[in-house]
Computed example of a mutant assay.
Amino acid sequence: MSRHDVEISVEGSRGKVLIDGQDIAHCVTDLTFKAGVGQDVPTLTLDLRFIDVPCLGSRETEVLLGQGAEEALVRLGWTPPHADQR
C-alpha cells in the first residue's frame, strides 16, 4: 500500500476528499477512515464511482473509467496501461 497526504472535510451535504492535494470527491461514493491507539498508520478505504462496462463476455471489451476515476487510481499507485494496450 502506498502512503498519501489525506484531508477530508464535510460541509452539509458537500465534502472534499483531498489525496495529495487533489480533490477526488466527485468520484467517491463512500469512504471509511480508521485511526486509533496502537495503529501505526491511519487507513482510508474508498469506494469509487465507475461507468459500467459496455459489453460483458467479450475478449476485447472497452473498460471506461468515470470522470476523475483514473486520476484517483493513479494517485493511489495504479499504473494505467500504455496507450497501445488500451
Results as ranks from 00 to 15, higher is better:
residue 40 D to I: 09
residue 25 A to D: 06
residue 8 I to M: 01
residue 15 G to D: 06
residue 80 P to Y: 00
residue 19 I to Y: 09
residue 1 M to N: 13
residue 11 E to F: 12
residue 68 G to W: 05
residue 82 H to F: 04
residue 63 V to K: 12
residue 57 G to P: 08
residue 4 H to Y: 01
residue 24 I to K: 06
residue 12 G to N: 04
residue 47 D to M: 07
residue 71 E to M: 08
residue 60 E to H: 11
residue 6 V to E: 00
residue 81 P to M: 10
residue 38 G to F: 04
residue 22 Q to G: 00
residue 18 L to R: 08
residue 13 S to T: 14
residue 53 V to D: 10
residue 85 Q to M: 05
residue 2 S to C: 02
residue 48 L to W: 02
residue 31 L to V: 04
residue 70 E to A: 11
residue 71 E to C: 10
residue 40 D to M: 08
residue 10 V to I: 15
residue 66 G to D: 11
residue 25 A to Y: 14
residue 69 A to E: 10
residue 64 L to G: 02
residue 8 I to K: 01
residue 69 A to N: 06
residue 79 T to C: 03
residue 20 D to W: 12
residue 1 M to Q: 14
residue 33 F to W: 08
residue 36 G to E: 07
residue 66 G to A: 15
residue 35 A to V: 13
residue 55 C to W: 00
residue 56 L to M: 05
residue 72 A to F: 01
residue 30 D to F: 13
residue 45 T to H: 07
residue 31 L to K: 01
residue 70 E to T: 05
residue 8 I to V: 12
residue 30 D to C: 07
residue 63 V to F: 10
residue 24 I to D: 01
residue 49 R to P: 06
residue 70 E to W: 08
residue 74 V to D: 01
residue 79 T to A: 07
residue 1 M to V: 14
residue 86 R to E: 03
residue 74 V to E: 01
residue 7 E to R: 08
residue 67 Q to Y: 15
residue 62 E to P: 07
residue 41 V to I: 15
residue 68 G to S: 03
residue 8 I to W: 02
residue 86 R to M: 09
residue 81 P to Q: 07
residue 71 E to Y: 05
residue 24 I to M: 02
residue 59 R to Y: 05
residue 1 M to I: 08
residue 80 P to L: 03
residue 12 G to A: 05
residue 56 L to P: 08
residue 48 L to K: 00
residue 71 E to N: 15
residue 22 Q to V: 05
residue 15 G to K: 12
residue 11 E to H: 10
residue 48 L to N: 03
residue 56 L to F: 00
residue 47 D to Q: 14
residue 62 E to Q: 13
residue 5 D to H: 12
residue 35 A to E: 14
residue 33 F to Q: 04
residue 53 V to H: 03
residue 3 R to Q: 11
residue 48 L to P: 02
residue 68 G to V: 04
residue 56 L to V: 04
residue 68 G to R: 04
residue 23 D to Y: 01
residue 53 V to P: 01
residue 5 D to N: 11
residue 42 P to C: 06
residue 86 R to V: 09
residue 79 T to N: 10
residue 5 D to W: 07
residue 82 H to C: 05
residue 26 H to N: 10
residue 8 I to D: 05
